[in-house]
């Protein structure tokens, strides 16, 4: 049971993810853009801002942010960094078009990693549990070794 911030600008994906996460027993708050997310996070950092945002926003801390990598207006790396800076402790990116380097890059930026679609409830649940428990998922070893040999 965790409080999860979902940032995606696709209603379909959002709806689906919301359902999945709720099914997994998490509390989800969903936003469509970085500015909204920052407002939300700010409200948590400064509880007095609650009144400005609205009563429905609770001031519990956000445990994890799930951010879509390819947003229409922005890119997930930037958004993730901003969220980290704003005080969100863990950020996991979601991507439909996985590339080998995404994970590496995300982790270099200090994000928790990239979760690739299609997702199943099981996989989603396992990864979220890992991240919340502080387990850093290693980048695919196969990919790396191949790269190394090729370079040589």
């Amino acid at each position: 049971m965790a409080r999860i911030l979902l940032l995606d600008d696709s209603p379909t994906q959002t709806l689906y993810m919301q359902r999945q996460l709720q099914r997994l027993g998490h509390e989800v708050c969903h936003v469509g853009a970085l500015s909204e997310a920052l407002g939300l996070v700010a409200a948590e950092v400064r509880p007095e801002a609650d009144a400005e945002i609205g009563a429905e926003v609770k001031s519990e801390p956000i445990d994890l942010a799930l951010v879509e990598l390819t947003l229409l207006q922005d890119n997930g790396f930037d958004v993730g960094l901003s969220l980290l800076r704003a005080g969100v402790s863990k950020v996991l990116l979601l991507s439909g078009a996985r590339r080998e380097t995404d994970d590496i890059w995300a982790q270099a930026l200090g994000l928790q990693g990239v979760l690739s679609r299609p997702l199943t409830a099981q996989r989603l649940g396992a990864r979220i549990a890992d991240v919340l428990a502080g387990v850093q998922t290693r980048v695919q070893p196969g990919v790396q070794t191949r790269g190394r040999t090729d370079v040589q």
């Binding site: 696709s10 379909t12 994906q13 689906y16 390819t70 229409l72 439909g96 078009a97 679609r117």
Partner: peptide
Amino acid sequence: CTVVARLAQNALV
């Protein structure tokens, strides 16, 4: 690219 990627993901849903 972004638009197409999004369409592709939604088609899967």
